[in-house]
């Protein structure tokens, strides 16, 4: 079939579509934009709440560290919580910037990349959690002291201190495995799915789509 025939068919398709669709011009003219929300607004909730929560946590952790300088483990745990809190704040700001920069009038490739990157933002947060894991026992110390005003270290005996050390080593290994898995180009969907409570296949799909966008931009003549 010649291209002209295909284009004629396409025009016929257009006529048929127009016949079956009715544009409500009255409603269109009265459309109240101020009452309508963009579908992207729903995406703002999580990064905004993360931003607020970890900003407060970060500043509290600074205060905590300064207040407990006489106990090295509290000062250290305060520093750890401060560092990771502001890392999560930075990640949230990046996500918010990405969401707010989405403008559907930009080129298709540009917007598809941005929207897909939003879906993979959870991977960035998982990486931060992976880095935090080895410091888990110190975060626990911080939390128990901050919330319950209990100094766990004062209650520890020798065996518990050994367990503390072993836990840190195990978490270090888990952290390394997690970071390695999260840096692979192809995610193991079942594994990621479990980790992301069912959203792993969506993230995996988004990563593959990002790759296909990258390929689409290349000029290949196959």
């Amino acid at each position: 079939m010649e291209n002209l025939d295909i284009q004629n068919l396409w025009k016929q398709n257009e006529t048929l579509l127009e016949a079956n669709r009715k544009l409500n011009l009255t409603l269109l003219k009265e459309m109240k934009l101020d009452k309508a929300k963009s579908s992207l607004f729903g995406l703002l909730f999580l990064p905004i709440t993360t931003l607020i929560f970890y900003t407060i946590t970060g500043f509290y952790a600074i205060y905590f560290a300064l207040e407990h300088t006489q106990f090295w483990y509290f000062a250290f745990s305060g520093v750890v919580v401060t560092f990771f809190s502001f890392w999560l704040v930075w990640s949230s700001i990046k996500q918010l910037k990405l969401i707010l920069s989405v403008d559907y009038t930009q080129t298709v490739i540009n917007i598809q990349e941005k929207l897909t990157k939003l879906k993979t933002a959870i991977v960035q947060n998982l990486r931060i959690v992976a880095w935090l894991l080895p410091f888990g026992p110190f975060v626990g110390l911080f939390f128990v002291k901050a919330v319950f005003n209990i100094d766990l270290m004062a209650l520890l005996n020798f065996n518990m201190i050994i367990s503390f050390g072993i836990a840190t080593i195990i978490l270090e290994v888990v952290s390394l495995l997690l970071l390695r898995a999260l840096h692979q180009k192809r995610f193991d969907s079942k594994w990621l799915n479990w980790l992301l409570l069912g959203s792993g296949s969506q993230v995996s799909d988004a990563l593959q789509y990002l790759k296909s966008i990258e390929d689409f931009q290349k000029e290949t003549s196959k």
Binding site: R21, K22, N24, L27, K35, K37, S39
Partner: peptide
């Protein structure tokens, strides 16, 4: 997908079967 337009009484484009 969440509907982005809040409580529109009718559709802007109606499609026949």
């Amino acid at each position: 997908r969440k509907k982005h337009v809040v409580a529109m009484p009718s559709k802007i484009v109606a499609i026949d079967e």
